[in-house]
Amino acid sequence: MLILKPKFSFDVSIEAEITPELAAKSPDEIRNFRVWYGKFEKRLEELFEITNQGDEKKLVLDGDFSKVKWVGMGMDDGEIVVKGNIGANCGAFMRGGRIIIEGNADDWVGAEMKGGEIVVRGNARNLIGCAYYGNATGMKDGKIVVEGDAGNYIGEKMAGGVIEIKGSAGDFIGTEMKGGEIVIHGDCGFAGGDMKAGIIRIGGKFDLLPTFKKTEDGWIGDVMVNGEGKIIKI
């Protein structure tokens, strides 16, 4: 297990594609792992205090990581625990393992995720589980749970897996969704625009689009794409 603490408060964002694999590397490799502080390439140890506790595939990020981006990108297994907030693109392209964010998460959590689990104990911002611009498919599998509120554009172009928001969410949920399930326990805005398939469950209020048809337990649509997506009230 590896514990990282910021050495100082960061002026600008850091890009650190760290995954639990790092914990299995040699102390030298860990210290010299390349990260970016703005335009300057740095060694991990220049920015973070590193504590090594055995080679369990686990990272503990202790402190304010709200300016640290790309944590857990593409990770396969192991665990990351973020004690505070985390920056953008956390868990993007993730294939397996687990990320627990005890604070808030920034945009693009679990973008194009293919497996594994992300839990955000606080709030998450926008574009959860979405496809990056120009790509055809968002999240394909795995699970993202946000215990607080979430922002706009959740699960856009999603094809599989589950996104669950325990609080409320913003606008444009499951746009162009192709599969999988989004659960919003609270309120949200427009849901399911041009969705082809998949399920959106909503506990609170939401804005129904005119391109959905009423069914027994909810609505089906989007008729514009001959969709069989379902919006179900919980």
Partner: peptide
């Protein structure tokens, strides 16, 4: 958005 969706339909 909703109005445009309606027009499309």
């Amino acid at each position: 958005y909703a109005i445009i969706s309606a027009l499309r339909a």
